[in-house]
Simulated assay, not measured.
Amino acid sequence: MALRTILNDSDPALHKVCRPVTQFDGKLHDLLDDLKETLANANGAGLAAPQVGILRRAVIVVDANDQMLELINPEIIAQEGEQEGFEGCLSVPGRWGVVKRPKKAKVRAQDRNGNFFEVEGEDIVARCFCHEIDHLDGHLFSELTDRLYTNEELDELMEAEGEEQA
């Protein structure tokens, strides 16, 4: 396993559509292991292969039990409800935006051996499914928000919200 460099939003690789994974071999397993290690090191909720410069349809998402899900060739097959909230990205460090996503999402994907499976997520997990799959299609969350906030602005907003609830 190895840490990979996470690309930032100005890198052209992040704006390209990824190719499907067709070979479920040691090279893919190494990529998935590296994505997991890189994600853990960055303390993120998800990471897609194009974020480390690999234009293949593979993502890692942390589920509600803090387990890392490997999703190869994922596609959203059902969604329900709506949620709106702040979203960030390891490829857009220090910036946050309000994004609408489904409240629940069901994904069909393959595992590292090519076996198909389905998984459901809600709230933050549904948000992560959508966010990471968007990466595979060359899109960033920043395209879905009206404004990007800095860490400082986000802290101020959260502090003000906390005072309103007190």
Rank of each mutant, 00 (worst) to 15 (best):
L47R: 09
L47A: 13
A48P: 09
A48G: 14
Q51H: 15
V52P: 02
G53N: 13
L55K: 10
L55G: 07
R57F: 03
A58I: 07
A58T: 04
A58F: 06
V59R: 01
V59C: 12
V59Y: 02
I60M: 07
I60E: 00
I60H: 00
V61W: 09
V62K: 15
V62A: 08
V62N: 04
V62R: 15
D63Y: 06
D63A: 08
A64L: 04
D66G: 02
D66T: 06
D66R: 15
D66E: 15
Q67N: 15
L69A: 09
L69S: 07
L69T: 06
E70H: 12
L71N: 04
L71V: 13
L71T: 09
I72D: 00
N73F: 09
N73S: 11
P74I: 03
P74C: 12
I76C: 08
I76R: 08
I76S: 04
I76A: 07
I77T: 15
I77G: 11
A78L: 03
Q79P: 00
Q79G: 01
Q79M: 08
Q79Y: 08
E80W: 11
E80P: 01
G81T: 06
G81S: 10
E82N: 08
E82C: 08
Q83H: 05
Q83D: 12
E84P: 00
E84R: 14
F86W: 15
F86V: 02
C89P: 07
C89H: 02
C89V: 04
C89F: 08
S91H: 08
S91C: 12
V92A: 12
V92Y: 10
V92P: 05
P93R: 11
P93I: 10
P93M: 11
G94S: 11
R95D: 01
W96M: 07
G97A: 03
G97L: 03
G97S: 05
G97E: 01
V98C: 05
V98D: 00
K100W: 07
K100I: 11
R101I: 01
P102M: 05
P102F: 01
K103P: 00
K103T: 00
K103L: 13
K104A: 14
